[in-house]
Simulated assay, not measured.
Amino acid sequence: MSVEVHHVLEGPADAPVVVLSNSIGSTLEMWDPQLKPLLDNGFRVLRYDTRGHGRSPVPPGPYGIDDVGGDVLALLDRLEISAAHFVGLSLGGMTGIWLGQNAPDRVRSLVLCCTSAQPGNTQMWLDRVQQVRAQGMAKIAEGSITRWFTQEWIDAHPEKAKELQAMTAETPADGYTACCELLADLDLVPALPKITAPTLVISGADDKALPPDHGRVIADGVHGARFEVVEHAAHLGSYEQAERFTQLILEHLKGADA
């Protein structure tokens, strides 16, 4: 059953809509670097907190990918948006894959960032669930920040790194663990050929959580997909290399609308 996720909708009512979908352990604020450029280029921007995150409800877990995808469809229905471009990172990208496979008429284009169609590492995700239950989210946040960014970026932006670490630390434990369970056995690879939306896949060259090989699998599985690897970017590449990610996103959205 879908939940009414917290969302923010900005931009002209008649502009094409771009949905921005967050990673596990973050909120809609992870897309702050992309917001103004998208608005300035004539898009209406819909950001939301995935269930179990930020200001969205935290229903009992475990969650399935159809749950988080269904929440997006319900949100589009509530806002009377027939179709939208969809940009997602990590879990957000997996949500986009599911939408492209199961609701193609609602997806104008896809940008799949630092993500995977089959994350693997089942035991790691289950171990992380146990770690959260034993130690809380603050400990998880310490590890997340070093996966999200290269050490060079953390050293150069210590205050911003602290803010983003706090974003994970403040994520509801039950929501985070339910999403870990979702990731533990997810496999969207077999249905990749069902995606018909124009698709751009972006990986970070320094992403140790989901290395570029994961992005290549998606790009190879989706007919006509474009694949880009951004240098000096770890898992939250849209933040670490915001200018390059934003440029690629805007190019793709404008091309899909042309």
Rank of each mutant, 00 (worst) to 15 (best):
V17F: 00
S82D: 12
G52Q: 01
S90R: 01
S90N: 06
L99P: 04
G120N: 01
G42Q: 11
C113S: 12
S56I: 05
L91D: 01
E80T: 15
G64H: 13
G88D: 03
T95P: 03
R108E: 13
S116W: 04
N41I: 06
I65E: 06
N22F: 07
L99D: 00
L46S: 01
R44H: 07
Y63V: 03
L110Q: 08
V87W: 00
N22V: 12
E80N: 14
F43R: 01
P37D: 02
A83S: 15
I97M: 10
L79V: 08
K36D: 14
P62A: 05
V19T: 09
V68N: 07
L73E: 11
P62M: 02
F86E: 05
R44A: 03
F43A: 06
R51V: 02
L39N: 01
L46M: 00
T50E: 08
A83E: 15
F86P: 08
V87Q: 00
Q101D: 12
W31P: 07
C114V: 07
W98P: 05
G88R: 10
N102C: 02
V19D: 01
H85G: 03
N41T: 11
H53P: 00
V68I: 15
S116F: 02
F43I: 06
E29M: 06
P119S: 09
V111S: 05
D40T: 10
Y48H: 13
E80V: 15
N22H: 12
G52R: 00
E29W: 06
C113E: 11
V19F: 00
P59R: 03
M30D: 07
P33A: 04
D77Q: 07
I97F: 06
S56F: 08
H53K: 00
I65A: 09
G120H: 02
A103M: 09
L38H: 09
G100Y: 08
F43D: 02
P104M: 10
L76R: 05
G61F: 11
A117H: 03
